[in-house]
């Protein structure tokens, strides 16, 4: 599904290399977790994959089902099936959550040559999915993320994911700022979306989220590269001993 090979990325405005030869492959249906200390380049990876401005790819490739991601505009990547759940979802006053979501769903369908959803079909789908995530009708009516609590914003991200039905979901520290109950809701939402043809890349600092979303593979990232890959037990090791031992081991 997602293949990243020897990816080198620097900031566009300054001579600072952030990703230094990162390689990673997420097969269809799997959940991979990326853990790593602050500043290791985890968020940069998620931004570069989804097409944010401000980064230069100096070397390497990234593809989704064989399609070169790096050549596409952000909206094209989304239509191709990539989704990024933001660490800090953006507030957009004056734009209703429903309008935003329906525009996004239909823009993607249009880009893929599918029929757009009618207002009725969309409403039915969004209500059902919102109910699963305990998102009430009032939240759907409000402007995008405006006045939402941290937990509501993250649940709104998962609602978008559920509505857009991406094949490759990247979650950038979705657990940050969530209490235990909210984390469970978010995890349940993600687990409900797991399927043989959908993959996840879950970026997190803590093992806790991975108790709820069981990963198939755990990668440890440091200084712009994947330095160690293993099973779920690797996350437990990080939780117990911190990154220090692991990093000194690979250096």
């Amino acid at each position: 599904m997602l293949k990243i090979n020897n990816l080198h990325v620097k900031l566009e405005d300054e001579d600072k290399q952030i990703l230094k030869g990162l390689s990673l492959e997420v097969p269809a249906g799997q959940v991979h977790a990326i853990m790593g200390p602050n500043g290791s380049g985890k968020s940069t990876l998620s931004y570069v994959l989804s097409g944010k401005d401000g980064y230069d790819v100096t070397e390497g490739t990234a593809s989704l089902d064989g399609e070169d991601l790096l050549e596409m505009e952000p909206e094209e990547r989304a239509a191709a099936g990539l989704f990024l759940a933001f660490q800090y979802p953006v507030e957009i006053p004056g734009v209703g959550n429903m309008t935003f979501l329906r525009t996004a769903v239909n823009a993607q369908r249009k880009a893929r040559g599918e029929d757009e959803l009618s207002a009725g079909e969309f409403l039915k789908a969004v209500r059902a999915k919102a109910a699963d995530l305990k998102i009430d009708a009032e939240m759907l009516k409000r402007p995008v993320n405006v006045g939402f609590s941290g937990g509501e914003k993250k649940r709104n991200e998962i609602l978008q994911m559920a509505m857009l039905e991406p094949r490759m979901c990247i979650m950038d520290e979705t657990d940050s700022g969530l209490d235990v109950d909210a984390m469970r809701l978010v995890a349940d939402g993600v687990n409900a979306l797991r399927s043989p043809d959908r993959s996840f890349l879950v970026i997190t600092h803590y093992q806790r989220l991975l108790d709820h979303i069981q990963p198939d593979v755990v990668h440890i990232m440091a200084d712009g590269r994947i330095v160690k890959t293993g099973g779920p037990e690797l996350a437990l090791e990080v939780e117990k001993n911190g990154y220090g031992d692991l990093l000194s081991e690979v250096r």
Partner: peptide, 13 residues
Amino acid sequence: EALFYLRSRGIPH
């Protein structure tokens, strides 16, 4: 930031 957020959801520029 907001522009990227919208585009990342598939909304054209």
